[in-house]
Amino acid sequence: MTCILVSRSIGGVFVDVVISEEHESEMEIAEHPVEKGAKISDHAWRLPYRVTLESAIAGERAVASFQQLLDVQSTAEPFSLVTGLKVYQNMLIKRLTATRDRENARVLKFEAELQEVVIVNTESSGGGSSSDDKAQGTTKRGQVAARTTESIPTRTDKVLSDAIAVD
Rank of each mutant, 00 (worst) to 15 (best):
M1C: 12
T2V: 15
C3P: 02
V6G: 09
R8C: 11
S9L: 09
I10T: 04
G11S: 12
F14H: 10
V17M: 14
V18A: 00
I19D: 01
E21P: 01
E22D: 11
E22N: 00
H23V: 01
H23T: 07
S25A: 11
M27F: 15
E28I: 15
A30I: 12
H32P: 06
E35W: 10
K39L: 14
I40M: 07
S41W: 02
H43S: 05
H43M: 04
H43T: 02
A44S: 08
R46H: 14
Y49R: 11
Y49H: 09
R50G: 08
V51H: 03
L53G: 10
S55M: 07
A56C: 00
A58W: 09
A62I: 03
V63P: 10
A64P: 08
S65A: 02
Q67Y: 00
Q68W: 05
L69G: 07
D71I: 02
A76H: 00
E77L: 08
P78S: 09
P78F: 05
S80R: 05
V82C: 12
T83G: 02
K86G: 04
Y88N: 12
Y88L: 12
Q89Y: 15
M91T: 07
M91L: 01
L92H: 11
L92D: 07
K94Q: 15
T97R: 15
D101V: 01
A105D: 10
V107G: 08
V107H: 00
F110D: 01
E113Q: 15
L114C: 04
V117F: 05
V118S: 08
V118I: 12
V118G: 12
N121F: 06
N121C: 03
G126S: 11
G128E: 10
S129G: 04
S130W: 12
S131K: 13
S131G: 14
D132G: 10
D132V: 11
A135V: 08
A135Y: 14
Q136L: 13
Q136T: 07
Q136C: 09
Q136F: 07
G137F: 07
T138N: 07
T138G: 04
K140H: 12
G142H: 07
E150G: 11
I152H: 13
P153A: 10
P153W: 02
R155C: 01
R155F: 03
L160W: 04
A163T: 14
I164S: 14
A165Y: 15
A165F: 15
D167Q: 10
